[in-house]
C-alpha cells in the first residue's frame, strides 16, 4: 500500500518500501509468466502422452494397416487395427451435425445480425447459450431414450443405436457456437457497406446474401470449421446413442462406434497398462487430436484474418 500522501508535502517513499515494491513487481511478473507458460505445458503434455503411447502401438501395428484395414477388432484373439470403421462413423455423425448446424446456424446468424432489433438479440443470445450449458450426457439421454424412439416411428430401418439421431442432436449442440462465431463476423462488417447496399435499393436478404456474407466470408467459414472440430470431438452423445460396435457402414441408420466412443468404452473396461488395446486408445486419440488440431488452426487463422480486414 502507498503511504497517505496528503498529510506530508515533502513525502518521499523510503528506500525499503521501494526495494520491497521492486521485488514484488519482479516476482509477480515472473509468476504471471509461469502461469501463461503453463498452458503451453498442457499442450506439450498432451502431445507427449499421445505420441509416446502411440509409438509403442505403431511398433507392433504398421501405419499402413492402421490407415487401410477395414476391421477394428482390438480384443479378438487375432486383433485387427484398421481405423476406417471408427473414422467413418465419426465423419458420418459430424457430417450430419454440419448438415443441420450450418444452414440453421447461418440463417439464425443472419437473422440476429441483420434483422433482429437489438432487444430481441439481447434476449436470444443468452437463451442460445443455455443450449451450450446442457451437459452432453443429458443430450445423450435425450437422443437415446426420447428422439430415437420418436424417429423410429417415421424412419424405417432405424435401429436402436444409430448415427442419424446423435448426428442431429450434435447439430443442435453446435448451433449456438456456429451462430455466435458467424454473427460476430457479420457484425464486424463495416456499416458503410450495409448502408451502401440499402442505398441501392437492396432488401435485407439481398444485402445479407450479396454483401454481408461475401464480406464476412472468412469469419463464417471459421465458424463452420470450428463447429466441425467440435462435432468430431464430441463424445458422450455418440457413446450413448450411436452404440459401441465398430461398424464400417454407409448407412447412418445403423449404429457404429466413433473414435471417441471407442476410447470411452475401452477406458471404462480397466485395461492393463501397456497392453496393445491400452495403447490403441492413444493411437486413435492421436488421430483425433491431429484432425481437430487441423480444424482449429484453420479456424484460428480464418478468424484472425477477418479481424485484420476490418
Amino acid at each position: 500500500m502507498l503511504p497517505a500522501v496528503a498529510q506530508e508535502s515533502k513525502f518521499r517513499p523510503t528506500e525499503t518500501y521501494l526495494a520491497r515494491r521492486r521485488i514484488i513487481a519482479r516476482l509477480m511478473s515472473f509468476l504471471l509468466f509461469m502461469a501463461a507458460a503453463a498452458s503451453v505445458l498442457v499442450t506439450t503434455g498432451i502431445v507427449y502422452v499421445l505420441v509416446s503411447e502411440s509409438w509403442n502401438f505403431f511398433r507392433q501395428v504398421s501405419l499402413l494397416e492402421f490407415l487401410t484395414d477395414t476391421q477394428w477388432t482390438p480384443v479378438f484373439a487375432e486383433p485387427r487395427f484398421g481405423i476406417l470403421p471408427l473414422l467413418t462413423a465419426t465423419l458420418w455423425a459430424a457430417g450430419i451435425a454440419l448438415l443441420i448446424g450450418i444452414p440453421l446456424g447461418t440463417a439464425l446468424a443472419i437473422y440476429l445480425s441483420e434483422y433482429a432489433p437489438s432487444k430481441v438479440r439481447e434476449i436470444v443470445k443468452p437463451l442460445l447459450e443455455l443450449i451450450e450449458a446442457v451437459p452432453t450426457v443429458v443430450f445423450g439421454y435425450f437422443a437415446l431414450l426420447f428422439l430415437t424412439p420418436l424417429f423410429r416411428m417415421f424412419i424405417p430401418g432405424l435401429t436402436g443405436f444409430n448415427l442419424l439421431v446423435p448426428g442431429i442432436v450434435l447439430g443442435i449442440m453446435i448451433l449456438p457456437y456456429v451462430v455466435s462465431v458467424s454473427e460476430d463476423a457479420m457484425r464486424a462488417v463495416p456499416s458503410s457497406l450495409r448502408e451502401g447496399a440499402y442505398a441501392l435499393g437492396m432488401t435485407r436478404i439481398q444485402t445479407s446474401v450479396r454483401v454481408i456474407i461475401p464480406a464476412a466470408f472468412s469469419g463464417i467459414t471459421a465458424a463452420y470449421v470450428l463447429g466441425m472440430s467440435r462435432a468430431v470431438g464430441e463424445t458422450m452423445v455418440l457413446a450413448i446413442a450411436a452404440g459401441q460396435n465398430p461398424n464400417l457402414t454407409g448407412d447412418p441408420r445403423e449404429g457404429a462406434a466413433t473414435i471417441t466412443a471407442y476410447i470411452v468404452q475401452m477406458a471404462m473396461g480397466d485395461l492393463p497398462q501397456g497392453s496393445l488395446a491400452y495403447e490403441s486408445i492413444f493411437a486413435v486419440g492421436l488421430a483425433l487430436f491431429v484432425l481437430t488440431l487441423f480444424f482449429n488452426l484453420v479456424g484460428f487463422f480464418l478468424r484472425r484474418r477477418f479481424r485484420e480486414v476490418y
Binding site: I46, G233, G285, L297
Partner: peptide, 20 residues
C-alpha cells in the same frame, strides 16, 4: 496455444490424465 486448447476435445484431456 490457448485458442487451440479451447478446441481440443475433452476426451483428449482424459487421455492426458490417464497417461500422465
Amino acid at each position: 496455444n490457448v485458442s487451440n486448447l479451447a478446441g481440443v476435445p475433452s476426451i483428449i484431456y482424459g487421455l492426458l490424465a490417464l497417461g500422465l
